[in-house]
Computed example of a mutant assay.
Amino acid sequence: MLIINVKDSETIDRALRRYKRKVRDTKLMREVRTRKHFEKPSVVRRTEKLKAVYRDVRERKLDL
């Protein structure tokens, strides 16, 4: 659970912006999405390998 201390002189908009930044930095939403459904460890490994291959191919294209 994220806690944001709102100061007396701080506006709600500014506090909300700080909260959103904190959520983004802690990668909370990414974890929530991954925990929505169970993936077998073999599927997780396969997707990680595919992502690595994709990144490698994209990086090689940029080097040309």
Rank of each mutant, 00 (worst) to 15 (best):
M1N: 02
L2N: 00
L2G: 00
L2Q: 03
I3R: 14
N5P: 11
N5W: 12
N5A: 11
N5C: 06
N5F: 14
V6C: 05
V6G: 00
K7S: 08
K7Y: 07
K7A: 05
K7H: 07
D8L: 06
S9L: 01
S9D: 14
E10M: 06
E10A: 03
E10R: 00
E10G: 03
I12R: 06
I12S: 05
I12Y: 13
D13C: 01
D13A: 12
D13S: 07
D13T: 08
R14T: 06
A15D: 01
A15N: 02
L16C: 10
R17I: 05
R17K: 09
R17D: 11
R18F: 02
R18W: 04
R18A: 01
Y19R: 04
K20N: 12
R21T: 05
R21M: 04
K22A: 11
V23T: 04
V23A: 07
R24K: 12
R24C: 04
D25N: 11
D25A: 08
D25G: 03
D25V: 03
T26Y: 11
K27D: 01
K27V: 02
K27S: 05
K27E: 04
L28A: 06
L28E: 02
L28K: 13
L28V: 00
M29F: 10
M29R: 08
M29L: 15
M29P: 00
R30C: 03
R30M: 06
E31G: 05
V32S: 03
V32W: 15
V32R: 14
V32A: 11
R33W: 14
T34K: 15
T34Y: 15
R35H: 11
R35G: 06
R35Q: 08
R35S: 10
K36L: 13
K36A: 06
H37N: 07
H37K: 14
H37P: 00
H37W: 12
F38L: 09
E39R: 09
K40C: 01
K40P: 02
K40N: 10
P41L: 10
P41N: 10
S42V: 05
S42N: 04
V44P: 00
V44D: 05
R45V: 09
R45M: 03
R45W: 07
R45Y: 07
R46F: 12
T47L: 11
K49E: 05
L50W: 10
L50T: 01
L50V: 00
K51R: 14
K51I: 09
A52Q: 09
A52P: 00
V53T: 09
V53C: 04
Y54C: 06
Y54G: 02
Y54R: 12
Y54L: 07
R55Y: 15
R55E: 07
V57D: 05
V57T: 03
V57A: 04
R58P: 00
R58Q: 08
E59G: 01
E59C: 03
R60V: 02
R60E: 11
K61F: 14
K61M: 10
K61Y: 14
K61L: 15
D63L: 15
D63M: 10
D63H: 08
L64C: 05
L64M: 07
L64Q: 09
